[in-house]
């Protein structure tokens, strides 16, 4: 009987991959934290924790801002279409298309340079820089969310559901925001938000790594909040990562990676493992909700 219960637990987890991978992510990070507590020196540990916290905080803020910008754009387009302002609709769509055509990394990189410049001139402080960074990344990733919302709105507008509600006297904005986006699309939106969280972590780490490696004079990485990408670019972390190559050709050196090169390995592992888990969670959600 006990065996049957256990197997059903495993099977449930296997079929609810989002829960499984959320658990794997949490346990993996917890294990890493315990290992670092035991073998990594305290200043380095604090830096890694600080970097991880900032990274995930910025990524969380990105999804909040991206949701807001996407919602705003969808509402604007909806109103414009209903009122029949064709020129305004064309202009807005055109502007969004231009933003879409700018490679995210370039837009964010240029924005980071601008934010670092503001920090350098003491115009803004670190907490504000975190907010601005999140807004900047959200500005270049919100289109995916907006496209999804627009797809859902267009799908429902073609159904009788929409006409029936309009005839019943329900306002357009209530149909859009409550009935379409909230009641009928929140699972889709939630799934997309999880995927965007991963994209935000990836973009932020990459840009921070690039800035810390390549733009190290005026636009010092010290001015920007420490994130996992920036930490990885530090000389001590970089040497830790370089040690992996040494371990590949000298397998006897491999165990040292987990004791002597822990800072870089922890940072790299946090980035890669988080990206993998977020991807798996997003996939699991799509499978579970049959999206």
């Amino acid at each position: 009987m006990k065996n049957k219960k256990q197997s059903s637990f495993f099977e449930t987890l296997y079929h609810h991959k989002d829960r499984l991978w959320s658990m794997v992510w949490f346990l993996g990070m917890l294990l890493l934290f315990i290992w670092d507590m035991l073998y990594l020196n305290r200043p380095a540990l604090l830096k890694v924790i600080d970097g991880a916290m900032n990274t995930f905080l910025i990524a969380f803020l990105v999804i909040v801002f991206a949701l807001f910008i996407a919602w705003l754009a969808v509402n604007l387009l909806f109103i414009i279409r209903r009122k029949g302002f064709f020129v305004l609709e064309t202009v807005l769509t055109f502007l969004i298309d231009i933003i879409r055509s700018i490679p995210q990394i370039i837009g964010i990189l240029l924005g980071f340079v601008f934010i670092a410049g503001l920090l350098y001139r003491n115009i803004i402080q670190s907490p504000m820089a975190i907010l601005l960074t999140a807004v900047l990344i959200a500005f270049f990733v919100f289109q995916e969310l907006m496209d999804l919302m627009l797809d859902r709105v267009n799908h429902f507008r073609r159904l009788d559901f929409y006409q029936a509600m309009t005839v019943c006297g329900i306002s357009g904005s209530r149909i859009l925001n409550y009935h379409i986006l909230w009641k009928n699309s929140r699972r889709h939106i939630f799934n997309k938000v999880v995927a965007i969280f991963g994209v935000a972590v990836f973009l932020q780490c990459s840009v921070d790594f690039i800035i810390s490696v390549g733009l190290s004079t005026d636009i010092s990485s010290m001015d920007l909040p420490v994130t996992l990408g920036g930490l990885l670019a530090h000389i001590d972390s970089k040497q830790d990562i370089l040690a992996i190559g040494h371990a590949i050709t000298n397998p006897g050196y491999f165990p040292n990676l987990f004791f002597k090169h822990l800072q870089g390995i922890s940072v790299a592992f946090s980035i890669v493992f988080s990206l993998l888990c977020i991807y798996k969670i997003s996939n699991g959600l799509s499978e579970r909700f049959r999206l």
């Binding site: 990836f202 780490c205 990459s206 790594f209 990885l232 970089k238 990562i241 370089l242 992996i244 190559g245 040494h246 590949i248 050709t249 790299a268 980035i271 890669v272 493992f273 990206l275 993998l276 991807y279």
Partner: peptide, 17 residues
């Protein structure tokens, strides 16, 4: 893990060899 690694993690891991 390799597929999900950002390019710089992979590249720096094998840069010495």
């Amino acid at each position: 893990l390799i597929f999900f690694s950002p390019a710089y993690v992979i590249a720096y891991s094998i840069k010495t060899e």
